[in-house]
């Protein structure tokens, strides 16, 4: 039948076109990653050679060993700084968000509506608006140039509280009442009856907080001045401006900074993508 074959034919063209577009998108997305990895494996002279090469002639770990052996770049220390700040912020955010979310979901008290509105208003205040006074407050608290200065201003996450409240509202009240019957204290109910139910939203919130903290740049740039207290993104810009003539080193340093976050992404990819899609939060 003529129409049938024409449908098949146009369907086939459509399918081919779709995969061509998807393939182009894929190459454009992956090319910079491939490029940084390949560049990091070139010798310092090959990377500035003209005409440039895409694939290293003789792949070498030289750039990585240079960075690892650079006494000015104690990588362990910088990884510790970044991890310490990220883990502390994740821990605190998960605790305050789940506890406050629980209170807003299951308790009645005067001023509740107002308090919730005040917290939600945080979402509307862009960070750039408060960063100057926040800096002055940290000066007063003597937290400038400390890692705590990166943690303490970020202990309450309005979005996290909102997320937890939504989720906890779905947990049956009978569970809480049963806990009260057994004579559990309010905090014990939160700790042993509510918290264990929250693993899914806590994981989501934790992953996003971790990634945001790990990649944070502007606030650390303002707060941190001592080299030894830099987080990885700060180290990266410092390193690149000190090794401008050796881009292969900068590329290797970028790979080192990218590896943990890409690993986390590969592990939690499903959760991350699904939640970005539904909540749209960055």
């Amino acid at each position: 039948m003529v129409t049938q074959s024409r449908t098949n034919y146009s369907y086939l063209i459509g399918a081919v076109l779709r995969y061509v577009v998807l393939g182009i998108g894929l190459s454009v997305t992956l090319l910079p990653f491939v490029y940084v990895i390949l560049s990091s494996l070139k010798t310092p002279s090959e990377i500035i050679q003209i005409p440039p090469t895409l694939f290293p002639k003789v792949p070498t770990w030289q750039n990585y060993t240079t960075i690892f052996n650079d006494p000015k770049v104690p990588l362990g220390l910088f990884f510790f700084n970044s991890s310490f700040v990220a883990i502390a912020r994740v821990g605190v955010t998960l605790f305050t968000s789940s506890l406050a979310g629980y209170i807003f979901a299951r308790y009645e008290f005067g001023g509740k509506g107002l308090m919730f509105a005040v917290i939600m208003a945080q979402i509307m205040i862009p960070f750039q608006m408060i960063m100057i006074p926040l800096y002055l407050i940290l000066v007063k608290l003597q937290l400038i140039d400390t890692l705590w200065g990166l943690i303490i201003p970020a202990m309450i996450d309005a979005f996290g509280i909102f997320l937890m409240r939504q989720f906890i509202e779905g947990i049956p009240r009978e569970l809480i009442d049963a806990g009260r019957m057994d004579g559990a204290s309010e905090f014990q109910i939160y700790r042993s009856l509510i918290l264990p139910q929250l693993s899914a939203p806590l994981a989501t919130l934790g992953i996003f907080t971790f990634m945001a903290t790990w990649n944070d740049y502007l606030w650390p740039l303002i707060v941190i001045t001592t080299h030894e207290r830099r987080t990885l993104p700060l180290l990266l810009t410092w390193y690149s401006s000190n090794h401008g003539s050796q881009p292969s080193l900068t590329m290797a340093a970028s790979v080192i900074v990218l590896i943990p976050i890409v690993l986390i992404y590969i592990l939690f990819q499903r959760q991350i993508v699904a939640n970005a899609a539904t909540s749209g939060f960055k």
């Binding site: 998108g25 910079p32 990649n215 740049y217 590329m251 970005a276």
Partner: peptide
């Protein structure tokens, strides 16, 4: 396609 969004913007800028 989502991978670039999770990478550090500083690294992206250098690359």
């Amino acid at each position: 396609y989502f991978l670039p969004t999770v990478t550090s913007a500083v690294a992206v800028a250098l690359i």
